[in-house]
Amino acid sequence: MSIGHFTFTHLMYLVQSIGWTLVLSAIAFALGAIGGFGLMLARISPRPWLRWFALVYIECIQGIPLLILLFIVYFGLSVYGLALPSLIAAGIAMMIYVSAYLGDIWRGCVEAMPKPQWEASECLAFTRWQTLRLVIIPQAVRLSLPPTVGFLVQIIKMTSLASVIGFVELTRAGQIINNTIFQPFLVFLLVGAFYFALCYPLSRWSEAMEKKLNVANR
């Protein structure tokens, strides 16, 4: 096998693929956030069947690797005639996965709100939904920002798994380049550096928010 040279064209190909990594991350996060918000509401619902449904969903999804979800959505559904483009399939699989985690993170933040805040709202004749919307969630959002941003970092890294269903994001682009020039050390080191450049600022931001929150709550 001959070893080629890593050129500017290869570099630009990697840079372009970062865009698709970000697109998939954004889809996974946006749809996962909608699903996660619904699951959070279900988990704290006064209706036991709804709490039970959300709990079972979260437990099941958290117990399945994302890779398997990708296979189910991409290969599994195609057997039944529903052949989805790899971006859509990856988006759906990641949405299912992300919603289970965000739902759980946000439930924890809402439940961490002091009980007297619920009581004070109750005494002012707020409905349960008004209490959540006007009093609890605005405070819980602040609490949830560091773990949510922390999880966003995980989402960006998890998009690399979409390469196995042929979606050309950063990892898959690296594989394609490596297949042509066979310089795995250089190519994947560069791919890793790009992931680091995407994730490190978010990690630092998450840490900074956590510190700020701890100081504010001291």
Binding site: P116, Q117, E119, A120, V135, Q139
Partner: peptide
Amino acid sequence: FQSYNLFP
């Protein structure tokens, strides 16, 4: 209440 319970 004793603990005020204002919305911070």
